[in-house]
Design a protein around this nucleic acid. Structure first.
Lengths: 336, 336
DNA sequence: TGGCGCGTTGCTCACATGAGCAACGGTCGC
DNA sequence: GCGACCGTTGCTCATGTGAGCAACGCGCCA
């Protein structure tokens, strides 16, 4: 039992109880504890510092502003959105998606043309967006997304849903994500319609995309573009995951240039050059690819979960959430 | 997704984050969220009401003032002390003991003579008391406590330790708790010394006692006064536990008058008549006996844990700790 | 169309609170 | 024993905040 602290600490606890649980004024507390109201104020300040008083915001849409600030500062992001991690992994995905949807809704200036990738996460974003989330926002797909096997058309559905809900038009890229032969890819690319879509994608005001892990749970394996063997080969080459269907290494480089050449859609450099590129990614399996993306400037806005955020910042699971330096030296833009 | 609430609720969450995590002023938050500062204040009030903002005092010596107030009101107690329940049961015991010690220290007017029972809990109370916790407080034992088997002398040690630490004298009752034969008990009681101690006990300014469950974990079984069979018989007669060595039923009556007649020490009626009788009891096994005591006026001050408190109030484990009606219609005495 | 009632909004004002400052008291080295 | 120093205390004052109130908009029904 720490004797030196117990004096003021116990008093601080009593003061905190009376202040926060009993809604008494500091003056009243002073009268009860027989100390001056200024001392009460100081005790409360101490209690807050020492973490005796824990204030938590319990809500599915809550965010972690401290982590957001840290992420933005560390990786030079325009913005970051961090949602508290729920226990459930499925819940986590949908919270990230919801947060991304919120971000889209409140984004200013409103992007007249939104470039869109596809995948599980983005489909959830589309579902989370309210009807009429904006007016006249058009959508263009950034990479091919005709599914070869299960769930045909989700890529197209995602894009059209987002556009529809904002009263806009969706321009689809109705091609495979990865072609078997380079010639085929070049030929399709050369097609005026397809070429036009990619050209249009380059003019988008904002990009919204996700990322996939380099493992067999990847949507590319699901869709039949890649086999488990292909993934294993990519991992050998250092791939950590994919962005717009392009597999990258931890260094942010293309893992397999040959494969990449057969991948249809916007290139990584074009993504990197974009002013507003929003990455929505959550879950432990995507930590590595998320790190590759943020450390190499492939996104300007990051929407993610608390665990991923801590991973990216180097302080893993633990780290007291209360020890967030509320130092206003790094003021950020408002993101209401 | 609740659409009607999301408007103000989401806004409230954002406001709460900025207010509690970022230490922004309501005015600043208003500027960020583009609402007036009054609306911010109202949103925060709403968030607090709805339990979106959870404020918790994380400290071993923390207390639950809301429950204390409720207990005092419900059972007509002079005072109540409720400590938050830790996961560990051993920890719980020592927290209750610590709280009882705190209560003793700050009790006003200082009792010049303190009547004392004995047991595991009270021994911990004695240990928790700081040296010099008061000046010149004498202690008198309330019931016999010579252990027949293990841990001889703890009863005496408890009393002397409490007295010593306050620079006072301890008057012991060096007799068995329960006698085998009624005649023996009467004979001992008739002894001038023993009779004098009991007489002295009747003049104590305050009583501090605990309670034991009516099961084989009872200190009476440990000490060899009762056998497991005895306990079983008592339970059959409706016993829920013991106070000052006397087993009582849920109705607050003596479970076995014959046994009780052989039990040495202060009687229950004398305890009930006392102005300041402090019961320190914690743990699930003692819920029943605690209820018997508080519902039948056998104590005027209750020191216990959160679970027991909720049990006594009828709202078991659950019950949102934030939904404590902070209605100041039942003002209580100060217990700094 | 015009009252009526209800919830919401922006305001005034009084009170609660935190920052900053001077005075105090205890401790240490000389 | 004496003065410098550091942490603590009680204060002033500016700012932050909540209660209470009038005005407003809105839906409802006559």
């Amino acid at each position: 039992m720490p004797l030196d602290t117990s004096d003021s600490e116990l008093l601080a606890v009593r003061a905190a109880e009376l202040y926060y649980e009993e809604n008494k004024t500091q003056d009243e507390i002073g009268a009860i504890l027989r100390i001056t109201r200024w001392k009460v104020g100081r005790l409360l300040a101490q209690a807050r510092e020492r973490g005796i008083i824990r204030i938590e915001i319990v809500h599915p849409r809550a965010r972690r502003l401290g982590l957001e600030r840290d992420l933005a500062a560390r990786f030079g992001l325009t913005d970051a959105v961090v949602v508290p991690a729920p226990l459930d992994d499925v819940e986590l995905q949908s919270r990230v998606a919801e947060a991304a949807a919120d971000y889209l809704v409140s984004m200013r200036p409103v992007p007249r043309l939104l470039g869109l990738s596809w995948g599980r996460t983005l489909h959830q974003v589309a579902e989370s967006l309210p009807v009429g989330w904006s007016t006249g926002v058009n959508v263009v797909q950034l990479n091919g997304g005709v599914s070869l096997s299960k769930r045909p058309g989700t890529a197209a559905a995602t894009a059209t849903m987002i556009a529809q809900k904002a009263g806009g038009e969706a321009t689809l890229l109705p091609t495979p994500a990865i072609l078997e032969r380079l010639e085929t890819k070049r030929a399709i690319e050369g097609d005026r319609t397809v070429g036009g879509v990619i050209q249009l994608a380059r003019t988008a005001h904002a990009y919204l995309f996700s990322a996939g892990p380099a493992d067999t749970s990847s949507v590319h394996v699901d869709s039949g573009y890649l086999t488990a063997d292909d993934i294993a080969r990519l991992v050998e080459r250092g791939a950590v995951g994919d962005v717009l269907g392009r597999y990258i290494t931890a260094d942010g480089e293309i893992a397999d240039p040959e494969l990449d050449a057969r991948t249809l859609g916007l290139g990584l450099d074009e993504l990197r050059a974009a002013k507003r590129s929003i990455l929505a990614v959550g879950g432990e399996s995507k930590h590595a690819v998320a790190r590759a993306i943020v450390t190499h400037g492939l996104c300007s806005v990051l929407v993610t979960d608390e665990h991923t955020a801590r991973f990216l910042l180097g302080r893993d699971i633990d780290a007291d959430p209360l020890t967030d330096d509320t130092d206003p030296t790094a003021p950020r833009e408002d993101t209401p």
